[in-house]
Amino acid sequence: MSRESDVEAQQSHGSSACSQPHGSVTQSQGSSSQSQGISSSSTSTMPNSSQSSHSSSGTLSSLETVSTQELYSIPEDQEPEDQEPEEPTPAPWARLWALQDGFANLECVNDNYWFGRDKSCEYCFDEPLLKRTDKYRTYSKKHFRIFREVGPKNSYIAYIEDHSGNGTFVNTELVGKGKRRPLNNNSEIALSLSRNKVFVFFDLTVDDQSVYPKALRDEYIMSKTLGSGACGEVKLAFERKTCKKVAIKIISKRKFAIGSAREADPALNVETEIEILKKLNHPCIIKIKNFFDAEDYYIVLELMEGGELFDKVVGNKRLKEATCKLYFYQMLLAVQYLHENGIIHRDLKPENVLLSSQEEDCLIKITDFGHSKILGETSLMRTLCGTPTYLAPEVLVSVGTAGYNRAVDCWSLGVILFICLSGYPPFSEHRTQVSLKDQITSGKYNFIPEVWAEVSEKALDLVKKLLVVDPKARFTTEEALRHPWLQDEDMKRKFQDLLSEENESTALPQVL
């Protein structure tokens, strides 16, 4: 008996699950189920560990084997000379395990699969056993689809999209007709009724959600790893209520002995410091949205989908001078704002400069500016000194954290500008005749005249004003913003236009 009217009423009120309206889709043409990776026989039982391990490696599972009696060998002398080797079968990115008779397991190899009674669906509900069930008529011709799209860092995100009359449910929550939600590992998919569980979705590319604290899981769906560094790992996640993407940084307390840091400095109150950081608001710094204190720290951040500045300059790639100017102007505005709010970044580098898009002209935002507030000064500097390429001379020669101030950030900005303009770092371990530390503390950077011949004198002058060993003589952010190279009204107008595109209400910060 159909429950279409009941569920449609529920759909009209929406769902609290991570779902959002989605535009129309072009329906895929039908194809045989076997060619799409559906096993030839149905099963109602969950797999054992041996079955799972075989399939996850990209080899055929026991459900897909063919009797050897149906095959015969071709003698080598009868092999056609022009026969080309077969292409290897792509490894599946996800697996659906059937929970009921009449449904088959599915190895997801393609990027898009339609499910329903219509014969054009890649996964067609046409098993005779299924057709005899009382629920068969409640399934729509095109009930739902599972697909994946390219996300940040060229990774993939799996989604389920509801197109049914009676509802598609993920972990008992209604997706909603015309809406989608991301699928995470071990999600249970039910059709027409929330208790009519048909599939379990296994994402073969992500970790299980159960490793994360419950308070975090209640608000966010964790997904793929976006990156990792000395101070922690960053994962893509989704807000459950809105389906908006965020980035979540995970900082290990054990790695940084944060408990010991608190004992050594009783004034170090991470929760208080995070609340201060959350109040920071500038178009060129990453917004801190939320914070969870569990076995590790979880910092929920605004997501930038254009990648890191590092990706644009790695491998001796240089940027156009006009692009360097647009990016560097924004970096200076961001660091100036942090300094005005009493925050020294201490870890400025291309990896911590994020881009809003893949376009050459785009907004940038500074991230990882609050680590000293979370990890403690000593722990952070011990970590950073392991990779000193961007560290100021006074940091390398000081004991502990004494003896330096916000000028350290201006040195790091000078190193970043040098790399963007030239395509190579000013200080490098590859210069074996002088140690990296000695290069930095003496201010002897690697200047290649033929490379810098293409760079304007004004740009080079600003680099020199920032890479000054004496912090008292080094340019401040205010002085850098007043430098002739940055007195470019076309560049500032472009920045204002980019801000307006992102948010019509965002105004250009005042600069002296």
Results as ranks from 00 to 15, higher is better:
S187R: 06
E4K: 05
E149V: 14
V246I: 07
A94Q: 00
S49G: 12
K131T: 07
F256V: 07
L99D: 08
K244S: 06
S53K: 03
F125N: 02
L129C: 03
I248E: 01
P213L: 13
V25G: 12
F238K: 01
V25R: 12
T26L: 11
D82L: 13
L96I: 15
E79R: 13
L226M: 09
P213H: 07
Q11G: 11
V109N: 06
F103D: 01
L71G: 02
D134I: 09
E107Y: 15
S61Q: 03
A264F: 02
P88S: 09
I146G: 04
S56A: 09
S39W: 12
R3L: 13
S53H: 05
E173Q: 08
V211S: 05
G102S: 09
R262M: 04
A94C: 07
S210L: 14
K131A: 02
K253I: 14
C231L: 12
Q10F: 05
Q100M: 15
L106D: 00
K253S: 04
F256W: 10
D265K: 15
T138H: 03
V234K: 00
Q34Y: 11
E4A: 08
E173W: 13
R180L: 07
E188A: 15
S187E: 02
V7T: 05
C108G: 03
G176C: 01
K177C: 13
S192L: 03
I221T: 11
I248P: 00
H163F: 06
S164P: 00
I248Y: 01
Q78W: 14
C108T: 14
L96M: 08
E87H: 02
N196R: 00
R254F: 04
Q10A: 06
K153F: 03
C108W: 02
E219C: 04
T26D: 10
E70L: 04
I38Q: 12
S5D: 09
E107A: 14
Q11V: 08
N112M: 06
I74G: 14
V206Y: 00
S42Q: 12
T225I: 12
A257I: 03
A91Q: 15
E263W: 06
D77S: 07
P21S: 13
G259V: 11
V175G: 04
A94T: 03
E70F: 05
L268D: 00
S44W: 06
G229L: 02
E271M: 07
A91C: 13
R145E: 01
A237F: 04
P213Q: 09
S53E: 08
G232L: 01
I258K: 08
E263V: 14
S120P: 14
L71R: 03
K179N: 15
L63V: 07
K255M: 07
T59H: 09
W114F: 13
D134R: 10
D126K: 13
V109C: 00
H163N: 13
A267N: 02
A17G: 06
L191R: 11
E64D: 03
Q27R: 11
Y72C: 14
Y156P: 06
V234G: 05
E263Q: 04
N186M: 06
A104Q: 07
A237C: 05
I146S: 05
E161A: 14
R262D: 14
K135W: 15
Q36K: 06
L71H: 15
L106A: 12
C18D: 13
K249C: 01
F238V: 07
D208Y: 08
S73V: 12
S187Y: 13
N112E: 04
L193S: 03
Q51G: 05
T43A: 04
T45A: 11
P213F: 13
I146V: 11
Y113E: 02
S67G: 05
S35H: 03
S49E: 12
L216N: 00
F256R: 09
A17N: 06
E86G: 11
K197Q: 02
P266R: 11
P85A: 09
P213R: 02
E84C: 02
S19V: 14
T272A: 06
D101E: 10
T89M: 15
L183V: 14
E70G: 03
E233H: 15
A247D: 03
S31M: 09
Y156H: 06
P128C: 05
R148I: 03
P92M: 13
G58I: 11
G116Y: 00
S41G: 11
R145V: 13
L99P: 06
E107D: 11
S44H: 13
T59W: 09
Y113F: 12
S41Q: 06
S19P: 06
Q29I: 11
A158I: 15
S55T: 12
K253W: 02
Q83G: 07
W93E: 04
G232N: 02
S32Y: 07
Y72S: 08
F169W: 08
L60D: 15
H54P: 10
P92F: 14
H22I: 12
V109K: 12
V25A: 10
D126I: 10
D218S: 07
N154C: 01
D118W: 15
I221H: 01
C108V: 04
S39R: 10
L130D: 09
P21L: 09
V25W: 14
P85F: 08
V170M: 12
I160H: 00
S164A: 05
T45K: 07
V246E: 09
H163T: 02
T168N: 04
D6W: 12
H54M: 10
S19C: 05
L204I: 15
D126P: 06
Q36N: 04
P90N: 08
E86W: 08
R195K: 07
R148G: 10
N166F: 06
K224D: 01
S228Y: 05
V109T: 15
D207E: 10
L96G: 03
F199W: 00
K214A: 12
Q83N: 04
N48Q: 09
S12N: 10
L183D: 02
V206A: 03
E79S: 14
A257Q: 08
R180G: 11
C108K: 02
P85R: 07
I160T: 05
V170A: 14
V234C: 15
N110A: 04
L191M: 13
E107C: 15
F238C: 04
K119N: 11
G259S: 07
N196S: 13
E107F: 15
G165W: 05
D126C: 15
S67D: 10
I251K: 06
D208L: 12
L106N: 11
V211D: 08
G259C: 11
A104L: 13
T65L: 03
P152S: 04
C243V: 05
S12V: 11
Q11H: 04
C18P: 11
Q10T: 03
R132K: 12
H143W: 01
E4P: 06
N269C: 09
Y139K: 03
K197I: 00
I250Y: 09
H54L: 12
R180F: 15
I251R: 08
F201S: 08
P152V: 08
G102L: 15
Q83C: 07
W93P: 02
N105W: 05
A247T: 00
M222Q: 14
C231W: 15
E84R: 05
L191A: 00
E81L: 11
N166M: 00
L174F: 12
S50N: 10
Y113R: 01
E84V: 07
N110G: 06
T65I: 04
Q51E: 14
D82W: 06
L236V: 11
T26V: 07
Q34M: 11
D134N: 11
G23A: 06
S33F: 11
G165P: 00
G23K: 03
N184I: 14
T59G: 14
E64K: 01
L99H: 07
Y220D: 04
E127N: 07
G165S: 13
S19L: 07
Q100L: 15
P128N: 05
E188C: 01
G227W: 15
E107H: 14
D77P: 09
Y123S: 14
A9I: 06
A17S: 05
K241M: 04
K255S: 04
Y156E: 03
F115E: 01
S223K: 13
K141R: 15
D6R: 02
P213S: 06
L193C: 08
I38W: 10
A158G: 11
V200R: 12
V25N: 12
C121I: 14
F103M: 05
L236H: 07
Q10I: 09
Q20P: 09
S49I: 11
L193G: 03
I248Q: 11
S28T: 09
S57P: 03
R3E: 15
I258M: 05
E87K: 09
A17Y: 08
S50F: 15
V198H: 01
D6E: 10
D207H: 12
A264G: 02
S55I: 04
Q209E: 12
I146W: 01
L106K: 11
M46N: 06
V66F: 15
Q10Y: 03
K142R: 09
D162P: 09
R132Q: 14
L183N: 00
M222V: 13
N184Y: 07
K141M: 04
G229E: 05
